[in-house]
């Protein structure tokens, strides 16, 4: 049996890729925001703020301890039971953003905690408030330290966004599947789809490596792990 490829697939797959990229970008941005807040709560919310610490911790454990696919199903098929209905794209975005926020929270927390204790003390000794110290001293360092694990998470979410076809979104995976269901060229289509994902992963890896290098500060350890 011969492999058969068709150039006509590419424009359709391209449209799917656009959706995949949009979904990934949006969920990573929302997740970064949520993750940073969760991490700050988990590191600094003590005393009268400790209920927030407990909430943030519970959130992180819950979302890291359950499959993203189940979370997606709850959002898309479960929430309508209580009158909340989303389009497939929005369901995907909501589930992915909630999920990656929990993971990013752990990366941010690790980065914040690896900023040396003396940095906070020195900031306070100059007279900065705790919030100022967090904002001007701790966070800028943590953001640089978090780049390698964050890049891995980005690539992870790009690949994992393929689950949204299961609720009917026309992402790269979904489009590939739709075409294949019509012409039964599953192998060829998924080889092409795999190649496109690989290309995007490669592009992202190189981009993030460049970003990391651009933002590098001597002495601020960026112990990179390969993506």
């Amino acid at each position: 049996m011969n492999l058969v490829f068709d150039w006509a697939w590419l424009p359709q797959l391209g449209r799917g890729l656009v959706l995949t990229v949009e979904l990934t970008a949006a969920c990573m941005a929302l997740g970064a925001l949520g993750g940073l807040v969760l991490a700050l709560l988990r590191v600094y919310a003590r005393g009268w703020l400790s209920p927030l610490y407990a909430l943030a911790s519970a959130y992180v454990h819950l979302f890291r301890g359950t499959p993203l696919l189940v979370q997606l199903m709850i959002v898309h098929f479960g929430l309508p039971n209580v009158g909340i209905v989303f389009t497939p794209f929005v369901s995907g975005l909501v589930a992915m953003a909630l999920n990656t926020a929990a993971y990013q929270a752990e990366y941010f927390r690790g980065a914040i905690q690896s900023v040396k204790a003396g940095q906070m003390m020195a900031a306070r000794s100059v007279g900065l408030t705790r919030l100022q110290a967090i904002r001007h001293v701790i966070i800028p360092q943590a953001l640089r330290l978090v780049i390698p694990p964050w890049s891995n998470e980005l690539i992870y979410m790009l690949k994992y966004s393929s689950i949204v076809y299961m609720v009917g979104a026309a992402d790269l995976m979904g489009v590939g599947r739709t075409i294949a269901a019509k012409n039964f060229r599953f192998l060829e289509l998924f080889l092409v789809v795999a190649a496109i994902y690989l290309a995007v992963v490669l592009l992202l890896t190189l981009t993030m490596r460049w970003v990391e290098k651009r933002l590098r500060v001597p002495g601020l350890g960026t112990s990179g792990r390969g993506a």
Binding site: S162, M173, L187, F190
Partner: peptide
């Protein structure tokens, strides 16, 4: 690099539908 770069769902489809195309 290949197995880390391709989504698991795509791998699942390749492994499930791929062989059947060769009978």
């Amino acid at each position: 690099w290949f197995f880390r770069g391709v989504p698991e769902l795509v791998l699942l489809f390749l492994f499930y539908f791929g062989p059947s195309q060769f009978g």
